[in-house]
């Protein structure tokens, strides 16, 4: 699987390198569009010193971790959300006649470095925010772990969004509400959102574990909803469960596809 992934991704990467100007434009464009979210946070903090009880550096830390997870997941698996396009054009059938996982073929299709624009952008934000927080050393171990769990959670959501398109082939945009919506949600402290929404993204769609719960540990802050302390360490568990659900949904989708066809 991994070998096939790397091989296909590398081939696409080489193909995209044939148009370097186009590629540079795409990297820059992706960098700039996502930088707008940072600009929004910056402008908000021109008017207030704290949002939902968190300061600028803390919000930037939440933004940076969420966005880095999202950018990595999007780079590696984001293409899965183009499934309905492949089903409608018939190219999904041609993936099924090859001796490789349809998921890997989907994920690597047109793999290009343009998504690295977003990754670079989140790295810059984290690079600025982290030193300003002055985190104690004994808590920083959580930062790489939370980013890794965030990648798994977002990748699972991309996969669920793809699997959903086996059902909603004419309405792939529904998946955007969960993928890009999840990214937008986790860019701000969850304390700004309504309690029902926060409980929903903690216990149903576990977006709270992308950065919020682990960040409460890193920043050593009380949970505004008073949820149990151990949830701060539950990100790997949440990521695992969601990944499992996504794998099952994808398999069910493939089975359903074979029994409907087009």
């Amino acid at each position: 699987m991994v070998r096939t992934y790397l091989l296909l991704a590398w081939t696409w990467l080489r193909a995209s390198a044939q148009y370097p100007v186009s590629l540079a434009m795409m990297v820059l464009g992706s960098f700039a569009v996502n930088a707008l979210d940072v600009a929004a946070i910056w402008i908000i903090f021109q008017h207030t010193g704290s949002l939902g009880g968190f300061g600028l550096a803390e919000v930037m830390f939440l933004y940076g971790t969420a966005d880095m997870s999202f950018a990595l997941a999007d780079t590696l698996f984001g293409n899965v959300d183009r499934l309905s396009h492949h089903i409608r054009s018939g190219s999904f059938d041609t993936m099924l006649i090859r001796p490789a996982s349809a998921f890997v073929q989907m994920a690597t299709d047109r793999f290009s470095v343009h998504r690295f624009g977003r990754l670079a952008q989140s790295a810059v934000v984290l690079g600025i925010a982290l030193p300003r927080l002055g985190l104690p050393w004994e808590r920083t171990w959580m930062v790489p772990l939370m980013i890794a769990c965030g990648v798994v959670i977002f990748a699972a959501i991309f996969t669920l969004g793809g699997a959903l398109q086996f059902l909603l082939t004419d309405a792939p945009e529904v998946a955007n509400a969960f993928t890009y919506g999840g990214s937008a949600l986790t860019q701000y402290p969850l304390s700004v959102y309504g309690e029902q929404l926060v409980r929903g993204v903690t216990f149903v769609v576990p977006l709270a574990f992308v950065n919020w719960q682990p960040a409460l540990y890193v920043l050593d802050r009380p949970d505004p909803l008073g949820l149990p302390y151990w949830l701060r360490f539950a990100a790997p568990l949440a990521a695992l469960l969601l990944a499992l659900a996504a794998a099952l949904a994808w398999r069910a989708g493939i089975r359903r596809y074979r029994s409907t066809g087009s």
Binding site: T11, W12, A15, S16, S89, G90, D93, T94, R110
Partner: peptide, 19 residues
């Protein structure tokens, strides 16, 4: 499939074969 290709649209033919 005569109506559609199983090759990779944007890749040179020889790269498709390598894949």
């Amino acid at each position: 499939f005569g109506q559609r290709t199983t090759l990779w649209w944007d890749l040179p033919l020889k790269d498709s074969f390598q894949l």
